[in-house]
Design a protein around this nucleic acid. Structure first.
Lengths: 190, 190
DNA sequence: GTCTATAGGTTGATAGAC
DNA sequence: GTCTATCAACCTATAGAC
């Protein structure tokens, strides 16, 4: 069980990690933001590492679960890609700071959690790659290098948090519509 | 003037910063990689900050210069975007580690250099935004939110280094062709 | 559940010998 | 141009009082 106080610590930590990075945020910084002393943090968490692991693994597991729900569906490749894009947008909006930590500080996980994270990331990419190659084979997608399609899609989705947090006025429905169209159909008028 | 030894220090530093981030690399780590002691580094550089600033500003200035060359050209919007995409690909290949530092550690620049960097980045985005809105107005580009086009393009180009370094077998010409097509025309077959 | 005090280690950087 | 020795500041984490 995670207490309310622990959740609060993790939420604030994620905000600070997003701004300055895991290594540049000290336990004193974190404690100060909560209005307590650094030593008091250890009544709620066991280490700085634990905070990082909770943040990163929560988002990573969320992506994995959603992918495993979408992957086996009996729908077109286009529909699968749309679902995945919308899922990334929703997680970005709900977990902006967590996502920033995952992107910037995953390499600072300890050995065991790092291995688990990389396993999840590889699994996710593998399934998305399979959706793309299915689309190329059945003619839904253009014949292009599948790694280029995979990573140009993923890199936009993974760094969405960077500019979404600068444009909070952007309506979710507009974002979903225009980003999906841009990623799937490009920008040049036919 | 930058001596050969100083260049070597900066090159190795960029490699380490890419792997672990600026704050997780100590002067002792850097010295060890060069086969000397940490104190000896200070015969060549004045501070750890100086190394970071040289790395980041060099790439940032390079992007700015190229954009200022492309921006005023009397060519179509499509051609301008193609030129910018190719420029990003070339800088990514030539300066992979420098680019990683710029992306991950720009916020650790000191006050003065941070202001200069942000000024350059804002200027770059402003000019690219202008190219995009020109394209929407003259009908070359689809009518979409211009911020969405701007940042979906930029986020792929900015994080290209992440996966290019994992796929060094990828031929530059294939990358230029398929990435340009994917970004400009999408992936769905018409 | 928070505090003070502190252990034990690492950090960036300097002084001065060679 | 590199070394050893060292400093002051900072780090994560623990012990024990309240």
């Amino acid at each position: 069980m995670i207490s309310e106080r622990k959740k609060e610590i993790i939420t604030i930590a994620a905000k600070l990690f997003k701004e300055k990075g895991y290594n540049a945020v000290s336990m004193r910084d974190l404690a100060q933001e909560l209005g307590i002393k650094a030593a008091s943090l250890y009544n709620h968490i066991s280490s700085k590492q634990e905070i990082l692991a909770i943040i990163i693994l929560e988002v990573a597991e969320s992506f994995t679960q959603h992918m495993q729900k979408t992957f086996p569906k009996n729908i077109s490749v286009r529909q699968k890609l749309e679902e995945i894009i919308h899922m990334h947008i929703e997680i970005t909006i709900q977990k902006t700071n967590y996502l920033a930590c995952l992107n910037n500080d995953w390499m600072h996980l300890d050995e065991k959690n790092l291995a688990y994270y990389i396993e999840m990331r590889n699994g996710y990419e593998k399934q998305l790659r399979k959706i793309i190659s299915e689309g190329i084979e059945n003619g839904e997608l253009e014949k292009r290098d599948e790694e280029i399609i995979l990573f140009s899609l993923l890199s936009t989705l993974r760094t969405l948090y960077l500019w979404y947090s600068k444009k909070p006025s952007l309506k979710i429905e507009l974002l979903k519509r225009d980003l999906t169209n841009t990623l799937l159909s490009g920008v040049i008028k036919a």
